[in-house]
Write a protein that binds this DNA or RNA. Structure first.
Length: 285
DNA sequence: CACACAACCTGTCAGC
DNA sequence: TGCTGACAGGTTGTGT
């Protein structure tokens, strides 16, 4: 589900209600998501005050105040179907089917983590463990940060024989892109998803980098996209999905294309590394 | 080492 | 109506 723009939208939504608040009650309703929750997870969160909410790639990092163990960082990955829904008042009773974690704040709000597929996970670590955390240590540059530029991308793609589509999904190359935004960025930059990654180094990388930044920034601006099982943290749906140019548009004409749809078949769907790729074979080379 | 693919889990939808 | 198979935004582990 959530790619970088959706996670950023969740971060902003959560910040509105969690920043500065004390977590007065934490209910964990199953022992694991994708991985087991850390030991005594709910107990260790209870009573902590939220100092800041940050994001690294598709991860949320919620920084907590000093407690018995020192300041802790609550690490969250939403997986494919994880959502954070915030509402005023007490938790729903009975709770929703896949509400796995329910947190109450000292000012009377409830934050619910719901995750149908349970590909998400959480951890609770010390600040000095953040950089070396197994899930964070090998992440590449933030696509919206200064370290992500044509030179860096070219270097990361150097010698890669895999298709550019697969390379951009590789979180060690650039951290935060997922299936939708890779498809959209490749379309906007006119690069075929089948093109071998190393051939994108150089001029094509110079073209691609600003397009990646733009598409992510636009999606964040639109409040994140949402498909059927994603809700932004305030429960409202995002609207960038209406701006997809190729994703989910198999057989449709691509924007600005004047070729004969009956003859060309329009936008194509292919499978790469087991995942759908949507693209226009005529305008992406 | 680099890459492709299966696996994780549940729900939805299209087709028969 | 019910069954089956394909597919869904991510990441890890395994096998070649």
């Amino acid at each position: 589900m959530p790619e970088l723009p959706e996670v950023e939208t969740v971060r902003r939504g959560l910040a509105l209600r969690l920043q500065g608040r004390v977590l007065t009650d934490v209910r964990q309703h199953r022992p694991d998501l994708r991985f087991p929750f850390p030991r005594d997870f709910a107990r260790r969160l209870t009573g902590r005050r939220v100092m800041s909410l940050d994001r690294r790639a598709k991860y949320l990092l919620i920084r907590l105040d000093d407690g018995p163990e020192g300041p802790l960082v609550w690490l969250i990955h939403l997986g494919m179907s994880g959502t954070m829904v915030v509402h005023q008042g007490a938790p729903a009773d009975p709770r929703g089917t896949h509400d796995h974690l329910v947190v109450q704040t000292d000012d009377g709000w409830t934050v619910t983590y719901n995750d149908v597929r349970r590909f998400g996970f959480m951890d609770l670590i010390r600040e000095d463990e953040v950089e070396t955390h197994p899930m964070l240590a090998s992440l590449g540059p933030e696509p919206l940060g200064n370290e992500f530029n044509a030179a860096a991308l070219s270097e990361a793609l150097e010698g890669k024989i895999t298709p550019i589509k697969a390379a951009l999904l590789d979180q060690t190359v650039v951290a935060g892109l997922g299936n939708i935004y890779v498809c959209e960025a490749l379309f906007r930059s006119g690069i075929s998803p089948k093109r071998l990654a190393h051939t994108v180094a150089g001029r094509r990388a110079e073209r691609l980098v600003p397009v990646i930044r733009d598409v992510l920034a636009e999606a964040i601006e639109a409040g994140g996209s949402s498909l059927r099982d994603f809700k932004a943290s305030d429960g409202e749906l995002g609207y960038f999905q209406h701006s997809f140019k190729v994703y989910g548009r198999e057989g449709m004409a691509c924007e600005g294309c004047d070729c004969d749809l009956a003859r060309t078949g329009g936008i194509q769907r292919i499978v790469q590394s087991g995942r759908s790729t949507f693209y226009c074979p005529r305008r992406q080379r």
